[in-house]
């Protein structure tokens, strides 16, 4: 699971109002190289929740992203885009869990695939 996916996931349990972002409990982190594409990254930047990405990236062992939302001039820079690229697309949670921030319910991640299926009493 890429951090882009983590950034798009929220707890889906019935009644939960603050289900984003899910807390990451990493057990195994891997890196997979992806072709660098500035246009895609600039497009995605506007859709990303920055704080969620920066925090998740840190938990995943990559602390190169600024805590504050970067200025537009910074976003255009190659140096920034390469870090953003790495955090967003190349760092994968292979094994571990995603935890609902409101209820503490754990969603397991196995072989890079989060399992968001709910029990009957959670739907």
């Amino acid at each position: 699971m890429r951090l882009l996916t983590h950034n798009m996931l929220a707890s889906n349990i019935k009644g939960v109002t603050n289900g984003f972002p899910l807390r990451i409990e990493p057990e195994k982190i891997i890196e997979k190289p992806v072709d660098f594409n500035p246009d895609f990254l600039k497009n995605m930047f506007s859709k990303i929740d920055w704080k969620a990405l920066a925090d998740a990236s840190k938990i995943m062992g990559y602390a190169e992203l600024p805590d504050e939302v970067p200025e537009q001039t910074v976003v255009e820079s190659d140096e920034f885009l390469r870090k953003f690229h790495h955090a967003l697309l190349e760092v994968h949670l292979e094994e571990g869990a995603l935890v609902c921030p409101e209820t503490g319910r754990r969603f397991p991640v196995n072989k890079g695939i989060p399992n968001m299926l709910l029990h009957e009493d959670e739907v």
Binding site: L9, A10, K32, D49, F107, P114, M116, L118
Partner: peptide, 17 residues
């Protein structure tokens, strides 16, 4: 590569995506 999710339809993605 595709990002995979075991979920009912798109549950978990509907808010942010």
């Amino acid at each position: 590569h595709a990002e995979l999710l075991t979920t009912n339809i798109a549950s978990g993605l509907e808010k942010r995506l």
